[in-house]
Design a binder for these strands. Structure first.
Length: 816
DNA sequence: GAATGTCGTT
DNA sequence: AATGCACGACATTC
């Protein structure tokens, strides 16, 4: 077991490190991803798509990455004789309406088969769970992989190197690097989420529950299911008491023998990554059987402990959620790092390497059941961890392992349980194993300095498989601190992405209880106290400091402070404003591009310092320079009005000096005009002889030069219909032409095919049939019966079934 | 003295 | 070119 685990993560680390060396970003992230099971990779892609597809529109089967979407049901391909086959291919997707091909029987043979790249399709057919549509709520939980074994990702470990550390640390990270980090972060999130979802599902397993239930006495079960005749308070008390009983009991029975999930950290350099190894006692990947086994032996990581506790409670009829605090790799490079590999300060000595090897072999040979497989090493990986040793309570009823393991882990749990207090309609946390706390959400948030546990995403899974983000219940500064660690603040679209991910786990309907909980969570967020230090005001969703305003942000004139902070104790006090009093200011040009116009005589709300002189001149004439370079004036939204082009009068459309019409937003269509968003619009209008103006819809910036993008045209409203009609006509013409062209090409292909056949037939006609058994079908008989016989002959034969006359062909294949 | 926050440097 | 960012050094609080 341990052997497998080590192999998996070991190869993983090596891979990443190797790819890192190659320096190319694409390879790097490629390698990164290649270590992730396809299902997860796809989830990432899937959840990332911005397209707002409604459930009904979604494909039943998920697309595979390599597969193009438009390879709809098979249309018979024309014989792949090399013609201008590229033309044909190009049109493939658009020609769906061209029914003609549906009617053409496909040749069962080709003379010269063009290489079809079929290889790419067969590769990933292995995937076990391809039918799982990640984006469809409610999730089809049965199709989530039923074991961790497909998962090579070592959650507790490091997956990549912190570039910032190795590169020039003075420079801010590049955009690409940031994206890369975010991608890793998101991938981690998904993997962890699914891991937890799977464990949650196992908690419902009847075999697991049956094995656990004997732990409970009838009295406990009674406590856990208080009679409804009790008062609200009484019920809650009974439940709580029952939980405590069960908790104490469980704590003595369950033995923590393995290390659970830890926070992922960045490696400082590749060496650290390469030399990284999982601790001996890290939890091994499990499948359902292993989990059942753990339910019997009551041993495992404290994560498994919490999961079994959840199963136990569910078996007693308690509404219990499995809660997991996901520990993805941070997208900021700050924070603690992996640090040096265990023991060896620099490189491993030969002896050490040898020792490691033997240990590995031992593990491999000796069955795990015979006690702890690996003797604890002196230089334990976590010898440096500062948490006091956690002695696992030795079970009295079981033979304790020869050497009680000391597992130092965070003093805060990764997994715990939430119980529904029915009386108060409230979910309450319970963690018997780590903090031994009940009904105390505040007790579960680790401090920011915890190297092994970082609370950023707390997900609660219910027994029906649905999940909810309940982070706000547990963190004390969601807005000020936690948010900054979450994907929402890393990326503009992060919010959307995360919602979409969770939507896969949503119940579809919002129950009353959901609503109550949502209210509770938002209230917690609103109640969050105002930060007391300057740093926490940065990017705060409610408050803002002047010092943190972006260059194009500005406070509304009447903005009033809602408090003050000082930096440290001696800094000058700064006013705290509300974020909603912050406005974005833009230049005249920017506003124009948004279809707005700065009112005349408005005083710019701010001047953006533009270009400053390249260098501090040796001469003292800086003053002049500065005066000349007080930059672009910018204005706020309410200093502008909607921009209006002059109206269309008598069919005359206004135009700019390039004979176009600026049309950046819909509101810029002039009064009395209509926008025809079609490439053919201008031509159609020209054909009709009506006035029109091509629409300038934006600019394409390539390097420094911006080129105008023209799309469609504006015509007078009364001409719109006519123009559209003409466009339809034009399109039909084009379609017609293309259709004819295609038909011609296909016919050409068929002709060539048949001609070749005929040639071949002629050639082989003289050859004795037994010399070339392969061709006898076609060749053997005399001319009389040729046709019929060929049609009857085996279809697997290359030429079978396709000996026809020219006339037949022409007649049969012509459509229309 | 650990934990947390600010400041100056590049 | 300079602004923003990250990081180490230093300061303050409990």
């Amino acid at each position: 077991m341990a052997g497998r685990k080590r192999t998996a993560s070991g190869s993983h680390a090596t891979n990443v490190a190797a790819s890192r060396t190659s320096r190319s970003r694409s390879t790097r992230s490629g390698a990164m991803r290649s270590n992730v099971p396809d299902i997860y990779r796809e989830m990432l892609i899937e959840a990332d798509t911005q397209s707002s597809v409604t459930p009904s529109e979604r494909p039943l089967k998920r697309r595979r990455p390599g597969q193009h979407n438009h390879q709809s049901p098979k249309r018979p391909d024309p014989p792949q004789v090399i013609l201008k086959s590229d033309d044909v291919d190009d049109e493939d997707d658009e020609a769906d309406e061209d029914v003609q091909f549906e009617d053409v029987p496909p040749p069962t043979a080709t003379i010269q088969t063009v290489e079809r790249d079929s290889d790419e399709e067969e590769e990933d057919d292995e995937m076990q769970f391809e039918d799982f549509d990640f984006s469809l709520p409610p999730p089809d939980l049965d199709s989530i992989p039923d074991g961790d074994k497909d998962l090579e990702l070592d959650f507790s470990a490091r997956t990549t190197v912190n570039i910032q550390k190795t590169a020039d640390r003075r420079k801010p990270i590049t955009r690409a690097e940031k994206d890369h980090r975010i991608e890793i972060h998101r991938m981690h999130l998904l993997c962890l989420l699914y891991h937890a979802a799977r464990r949650n599902r196992w908690c419902n397993d009847s075999a697991v529950q049956e094995r656990l239930r004997p732990l409970l006495t009838n009295k406990m079960i009674k406590y856990l299911n208080p009679s409804t005749s009790l008062t609200q308070f009484g019920q809650a008390q009974s439940l709580k008491e029952g939980l405590q009983h069960v908790g104490t009991l469980y704590k003595t029975r369950f033995q923590i023998t393995e290390r659970g999930i830890r926070r992922a950290l960045w490696a400082d350099n590749e060496e650290h990554l390469q030399n990284y190894q999982l601790p001996d006692d890290a939890e091994s990947p499990m499948d359902k059987e292993d989990f059942r086994e753990a339910a019997k032996s009551l041993r495992g990581s404290r994560d498994v402990g919490a999961q079994l506790y959840c199963a136990l409670l569910r078996s007693a009829g308690v509404e219990a959620r499995l809660v997991c605090s996901l520990q993805p790799l941070a997208f900021t490079s700050g924070g603690p790092a992996l640090g040096k590999p265990p023991k060896a300060k620099g490189k491993l000595s030969i002896e050490e390497q040898y020792a490691r090897m033997t240990k590995y072999n031992n593990t491999f040979e000796s069955p795990v059941a015979s006690g702890p497989p690996i003797a604890k090493r002196l230089g334990h990986p976590n010898a440096m961890a500062y948490y006091p040793p956690r002695i696992t309570p030795a079970s009295s009823s079981r033979k304790p392992p020869p050497v009680p393991k000391k597992i130092r882990e965070s003093a805060y749990p990764i997994y715990w349980v939430e119980i529904l207090d029915e009386g108060h309609q409230k979910w309450q946390p319970a963690d018997p194993l780590v903090t031994d706390s009940f009904w105390k959400p505040q007790k579960l948030e680790p401090p920011a300095s915890d190297r092994e546990n970082c609370m950023a995403y707390v997900i609660a899974f219910e027994s029906d498989g649905t999940a909810k983000d309940v982070t706000r219940r547990y963190v004390k500064a969601y807005n000020a601190k936690t948010r900054k660690m979450r994907i929402e603040s890393a990326q503009a679209t992060g919010d959307k992405w995360w919602r979409k991910v969770l939507q896969a786990f949503s119940r579809g309907i919002t129950t009353d209880l959901d609503q109550i909980e949502n209210n509770e969570l938002t209230e917690l967020e609103l109640r969050e106290p105002m930060p007391r230090n300057v740093a926490d005001f940065k990017d705060h969703p409610i408050y803002a400091l002047e010092r943190h305003l972006r260059r194009n942000e500005v406070l509304v004139p009447g903005a009033s402070a809602s408090g003050t902070v000082g930096a440290g104790s001696k800094g000058p006090l700064e006013k705290i404003y509300r974020r909603r009093d912050v406005r974005i200011a833009r230049s005249k040009e920017k506003w124009y591009r948004m279809g707005r116009e700065v009112l005349p005589n408005e005083i710019p709300v701010k001047f953006l310092p533009k270009r400053v002189k390249p260098k501090a001149d040796l001469f003292g004439d800086e003053e002049d320079d500065d005066c000349g370079t007080v930059g672009t004036p910018i204005y706020t939204h309410d200093q502008t009005i909607l921009f209006k082009h002059p109206p269309v009068i008598n069919g005359r459309v206004p135009k700019n000096r390039f004979r176009n019409l600026d049309l950046y937003v819909p509101s810029m269509v002039p009064e009395g005009g209509a926008y025809v968003p079609d490439e053919l619009a201008a031509r159609a209008a020209f054909i009709l002889g009506v006035d029109y103006a091509p629409a300038l819809t934006g600019f394409l910036f390539k390097g420094k030069h911006g080129t105008a993008v023209l799309h469609g045209a504006v015509v007078a409203a009364e001409n719109e219909e006519a123009v559209c009609a003409v466009i339809d006509g034009l399109k039909e013409q084009v379609a017609e032409f293309e259709k004819a062209q295609r038909t011609r090409e296909v016919l050409k292909a068929w002709r060539l095919f048949l001609m070749s056949l005929r040639v071949r037939q002629r050639i082989w006609a003289d050859v004795d049939s037994d010399e070339e058994g392969n061709h006898e079908d076609v060749v053997e008989s005399g001319d009389g019966d040729d046709h019929a016989k060929a049609l009857r002959s085996d279809a697997s034969d290359e030429a079978g079934g396709f000996i026809v006359d020219d006339e037949d062909m022409a007649g049969g294949f012509m459509v229309d």
